[in-house]
C-alpha cells in the first residue's frame, strides 16, 4: 500500500468572520469587538502559513480494532467512523508558529487581543482542514468521512505519538508534540479521514 508521506502548502483559505467571533465566545458583536477582530486579522494575516502532511493507508476495521497495515489502533468510535472504508488519509495540518507568538505576546499585554488571536487560529486551522479535505475529495475522486482526531470518543490522545512518527511531522511541517501530548504550533490538527 501507499507508504509515502506527502506535503502540501495551501494559499490562504477564505476567512469566516462569524466563526472567529463564535470561537471568541461572542454571540453578538458590537462595533468595538468587530474593530478588535479586524485589527487582529490584519496583524495575523501575513504571519500564517497553511501546511499539511499526509499519508494514505489501507484500513480494515473489526469491532474496536482498526488495522492500517503499518500500525493498529484500538478504538470503537474510530472503527465506526471508518466502517466500510478501505483506505484512510492520516494527516497533520498547522497554521504555523507565528500565531502562537502573537497569542503569547498579547496574553502578556492585552488578553482581549490574545483571545481574538486564539479564535482566529481556531478558525484558520479548521479552514485549512476544510481546504485539504476538499482537495483530497477531488484527488481521490471519492466521498470522505468526517475528520476524526485523537481525543474524539475513545481514541486516546496518546496515539498522537504514533501519528507523529508515521507522518514525520517535525521534518515535514515543523510540528512537534510535547510531554503532555499537546501540539506546537498550538493551532494544528491531526486526524483520520476515511475514504469511502
Amino acid at each position: 500500500m501507499n507508504s509515502v508521506v506527502l506535503s502540501k502548502t495551501y494559499p490562504q483559505p477564505p476567512f469566516c468572520e462569524r466563526e472567529v467571533l463564535r470561537y471568541a465566545g461572542c454571540k453578538e458583536a458590537d462595533k468595538e469587538v468587530v474593530a478588535l477582530m479586524n485589527a487582529c486579522l490584519q496583524e495575523a494575516k501575513d504571519k500564517l502559513s497553511y501546511k499539511v502532511c499526509y499519508r494514505i493507508f489501507s484500513v480494515k476495521t473489526e469491532d474496536e480494532l482498526c488495522d492500517f497495515g503499518a500500525f493498529r489502533l484500538r478504538s470503537k468510535d474510530l472503527a465506526v467512523n471508518l466502517k466500510n472504508c478501505r483506505r484512510v488519509i492520516l494527516f497533520a495540518a498547522t497554521v504555523g508558529i507565528e500565531l502562537d507568538r502573537l497569542i503569547v505576546k498579547y496574553s502578556r499585554i492585552s488578553p482581549a487581543r490574545s483571545l481574538m488571536m486564539q479564535a482566529i487560529g481556531a478558525e484558520r486551522v479548521e479552514a485549512l482542514c476544510d481546504a485539504f479535505c476538499a482537495d483530497m475529495a477531488k484527488e481521490t475522486n471519492a466521498d470522505l468521512r468526517p475528520r476524526f482526531s485523537p481525543g474524539y470518543g475513545d481514541l486516546p490522545l496518546v496515539c498522537q505519538k504514533e501519528i507523529f512518527s508515521l507522518l514525520d511531522c517535525g521534518k515535514r511541517i515543523g510540528l512537534s508534540l510535547n510531554d503532555s501530548l499537546l501540539m506546537a504550533p498550538s493551532k494544528s490538527v491531526t486526524a483520520f479521514i476515511g475514504i469511502i
Binding site: A24, G25, C26, K27, E28, A29, D30, E32, V33, L36, M37, S110, P111, A112, L115, M116
Partner: peptide, 11 residues
C-alpha cells in the same frame, strides 16, 4: 456582554 467585551473593558 460577551468575553471579548469583558476583556476589553478590563484592559
Amino acid at each position: 456582554v460577551y468575553l471579548p467585551q469583558l476583556l476589553m473593558s478590563a484592559e
